[in-house]
Nucleic acid binder design. Structure first.
Lengths: 331, 331
DNA sequence: TTGAAAGCGCTAACAC
DNA sequence: GTGTTAGCGCTTTCAA
């Protein structure tokens, strides 16, 4: 029982292979009776088109490539949901590549996905290697960068300002009367560095920046790391009365550590997270955070590519952010 | 600047296309000097093999297909990490399909991934349609089912017993002296139904099963749903003194709801979760849970397929589970 | 160790 | 509306 080809289906339906191809690809260009016969033959033989042959002949793929720093990071699963939803009810298929936060690895994996050329490419961040940019230019495929902003995107970019977001969050803490505010950061990728920059700017503006207030690690963000970093912070900066965290995981870890140590939130310590990953709205007390447009960035990027790369009028789309002020920062 | 082909590389290196192909695919079958020349030409032209052409000519893909019920569920991201790690340093590429917990959708998506045939297929659960089984049999591709056990796997299966795991968890609560134990379940897929069955068996054995003790929903599991389900449970079963949750998300939601209502854990209410998703070991109090071999199932399934589908001696591999007894169930 | 010929299954371009 | 011809870029088979 060898796999049926277009020729087999054609024989069964009493027509030529190319007619079957047309009946399947553009049913409107074919007579009704013929379409019915072809459909019957397809079903009878269990015909499934060979993607490789189709791609080779037409030099057209139906795939969208997404390069993601990490699949186990909830931040990116939200983004992926957005992309998936945008591709739903479309012939487009999603090809996910994992970069491990490494531009060189991104280049390597992306290269293998670029021949034949996909319908579009979604890239996280703006730190691509020159090689990557060159490759992309040669292939001439629509590219959408996400998660950040840039005046000089490869092609198009949809994101938000990490610096502004962190700046706003830090100012919120300052406004609430906290005056020894720490920064906790894990997975210090370039976007996290921008958050740190925004934080620093806000504190400097207020004349209350202190070197000791910053504790970061390059390890992946999780709840446990939050507690550990907070431990370090309180050691080197005991007067600390609030923390801004890089990511909600960390913020939750800080809250738990406070519960363990009997530190009252928000009176003794204010907490603000980042990304609004869900659990911060449920814990006790609820944790203030910065809502970032994770799902929307994915959905918008997907839509742009579904529309052939011409979805946005401007090359840069700023989806913004919003402060979700909850109980952990209201003293 | 059109994309270079094998012929172009051959011309550049002064050899034929087929020789280039060989130099790239099996370098040991080619003289050193030639290999050097070819490598130089490849680099100079920026040659990248055309996957479609290669696949079409050899009728061999280098992809592993994984059908996952949902990418936004942390349970599956852990599994995916395992698979990815197994494929690392391998020519194999991961193709992820999303089933949305629907066997019909699984069939539809899988069908489109099956021609040309991938090197292997990983399927979650054992609820495939007959059509799906038929397709897979026709294609003759190695299949590994994961997340569950079965005496009649399609091909091979690696998982653990959900019923036994829930049975053990429920018995643990019974042993600790809780006697009105509720079951909270979201995303009631077939594996969750098995957990419910295991729970029920334990309570019935102990002569303390009560209809009102079971509160479930088909909505996806998250922290908020945990609180909601717990609310329902306490309404319809006020004497409830412990809950076993389908998933750690729910357990965390229950803990938060207890904090809100001033219910003391574990004295007034015992809590046990499922899957050991990380945060349960960090919260206050820590939450007892069932550690399931999420990463390991992915890694093992991946390894089996990397080894050509013959990795396991037995068709069924039971990776087991373990009780992580923490503070939420020790009164 | 290297090359020539044939063909994988499909579609573009052109006929009828 | 339907068929014919050619060829996508590669690998298989066979020959040298």
């Amino acid at each position: 029982m060898t796999k049926p080809t277009l020729v087999d289906v054609g024989k069964e339906a009493g027509v030529s292979a190319i007619t079957v191809s047309r009946a399947l690809r553009s049913p409107e260009k074919v007579s009704d009776s013929l379409r019915a016969k072809v459909d019957a033959a397809v079903r009878k033989l269990g015909y499934v088109p060979n993607q490789s042959a189709s791609t080779l002949a037409s030099s057209e793929t139906n795939s969208i490539v997404v390069m993601i720093p990490s699949i186990s990071n909830n931040v990116f699963t939200d983004v992926l949901r957005g992309i998936e939803d945008a591709l739903k009810h479309t012939r487009l298929t999603l090809q996910i590549g994992n970069t491990g936060y490494d531009p060189i690895e991104e280049e390597r994996v992306l290269r293998s996905f670029l021949n034949p050329a996909p319908k579009g490419v979604i890239l996280a961040g703006i730190e691509q290697t020159n090689e990557t940019r060159q490759m992309l230019a040669n292939v001439g495929v629509p590219v959408v960068q996400i998660m950040d902003l840039s005046d000089a995107p490869i092609d198009q970019i949809v994101g938000f300002s990490h610096e502004d977001a962190a700046f706003a969050a830090a100012n919120h803490l300052i406004d609430k009367g906290y005056c020894n505010i720490g920064f906790l950061g894990a997975q210090m990728d370039p976007r996290s560095q921008k958050r740190l920059a925004g934080f620093r700017k806000a504190l400097q503006n207020a004349g209350m920046y202190d070197e000791r207030a910053v504790v970061v690690t390059n390890r992946p963000s999780d709840v446990n790391i939050g507690a550990i970093l907070f431990g370090k912070l309180t050691t080197q900066y005991p007067e600390c009365d609030a923390v801004f965290c890089n990511n909600d995981d960390l913020a939750l870890g800080v809250l738990f550590e406070c519960q363990r140590r009997g530190i009252r939130v928000p009176t003794e310590l204010g907490i603000c997270g980042f990304n609004d990953l869900g659990v911060t709205s449920q814990c006790v007390p609820t944790i203030s955070t910065v809502r970032t447009p994770l799902y929307d960035m994915g959905a918008k990027a997907g839509k742009i590519l579904v529309d052939g790369g011409a979805g946005a009028k401007d090359r840069q789309v700023d989806l913004g952010f919003s402060l979700e002020i909850r109980n952990s920062s209201l003293r």
